[in-house]
Simulated assay, not measured.
Amino acid sequence: MAPPPNRRPGFSRRAQYGLFISYVVAVGGALVGACLLLLSTFNPPAFAAVRGFFSEIVTPIASGLDWTRRGVSGIPGGIASYFGVRSENAALRAQVERDRALVDQARAITNENRRLRAMLRLRDRTAEPVVAARLVYSSASSTRRFAVLNAGSWQGVRTGMPVRGPNGLIGRVVEVSPNTARVLLILDPESIVPVRRVRDGLPAIAAGRGDGLLEIRSASAAQAQFEAGDAFVTSGVGGVFPPNIAVGRVSRRARDLAEAAPLASPDTLDFALVQQMFLPEAGQVRAPEAAPR
């Protein structure tokens, strides 16, 4: 027989105790809430102390629950990160193996180059610095581009010596006095610098335009394609400029003749470094004719 739907808890002592405890808890909570409300209204400092006491008790529990919640919610992300790190680690290992092969190839080429140089008895030369001098003047308003250094023959400066800054080549010395030197900038239309492209060694000629930019011309018979961002450095051909000094970077794509921006601007430099000619016995550098008045 099914029990009646509206049964009173009097038949079970456990149900009676549970109902009594719930009533006591509800009444006690209401009394505590009323006391706290009165305390916060009439005695705020005492309420602040009570609130701080309960905060000290509740804060560790809340922190533990928050740590647990974050740990549980971070499990899927951790699993995804684990597999992501494994795939990235595999990709990096493959990249390291490819780079190792390139490094081994470069080492083999270097050793072969050293051996061939020893067989041919080639003699390398390093362009030693002569003096570091201040750029006291540079022409920027005319088509002829010169600069003046506050160092001359008394400091060891000679005609034809290259002048460079921290970012690249500036020019070469064309006139020398006891304490000053006149520098023909690579931006001058009379300046010609043998260069090569960094990415493939393409030989070219960098000539000044007189307007703060350079022209890069291909030195080979075949048509050359210049891409934006191509960097050019000195090639060492001619024996004046040491190799591997930064000269300019191509501004936009072109064929055979490209516009380039110099990497070293004399207008923004305070000091410059005068170096020895790469191969002084290769030839003498003749100073350009004076500009017309």
Rank of each mutant, 00 (worst) to 15 (best):
A260K: 03
R255S: 12
A246W: 10
Q275S: 09
R253H: 08
S251F: 12
G239K: 09
R249E: 14
D267P: 00
D270E: 07
Q284T: 12
R286P: 13
R217L: 00
P243N: 09
P280A: 05
A222R: 12
S220P: 14
V285F: 07
A282C: 05
L269A: 03
R255F: 11
A260L: 01
G236E: 13
F278T: 00
Q284W: 12
S265A: 04
L279W: 15
E281V: 06
E259D: 10
D230G: 09
G236F: 10
R286W: 15
P243I: 05
V237T: 15
P243K: 03
L269C: 04
V250C: 06
V247W: 14
Q284D: 12
F278I: 01
S235H: 10
L279I: 14
L269S: 02
A260M: 02
E281L: 01
L263G: 13
V285G: 11
D256E: 07
S220L: 07
L269K: 00
Q225N: 15
P280Q: 07
D230T: 09
S235L: 08
A260Q: 06
Q225I: 14
I245G: 02
F271G: 08
A224S: 12
R249K: 14
A287D: 08
E227C: 03
D256F: 04
R249C: 10
V250M: 05
G283I: 00
F241T: 09
R253K: 03
P243R: 03
Q225K: 14
E281P: 01
Q223W: 09
I245P: 02
A219I: 05
D230A: 08
A260C: 06
Q223L: 02
Q223T: 04
G248M: 01
Q275N: 10
P242H: 13
F232G: 07
P243S: 10
R217E: 05
S235W: 10
R286F: 15
A224H: 09
P262T: 12
F271C: 05
F232N: 06
L263E: 11
R217T: 06
S220V: 06
V274R: 02
L273M: 06
A260H: 06
T268E: 10
V237N: 15
V240R: 07
A228P: 12
G248Q: 07
V247Q: 15
G229C: 13
P242E: 11
V274N: 05
V237D: 15
I245T: 11
S218G: 04
V240E: 13
Q276L: 02
G239T: 15
F271A: 09
A287L: 00
Q225M: 13
G239S: 14
A219R: 02
V250H: 02
A261I: 01
S218F: 00
T234K: 05
A272P: 00
P262A: 12
A231I: 14
A264M: 01
V250W: 01
V250P: 02
A260V: 03
R253Y: 08
V233R: 10
R252C: 03
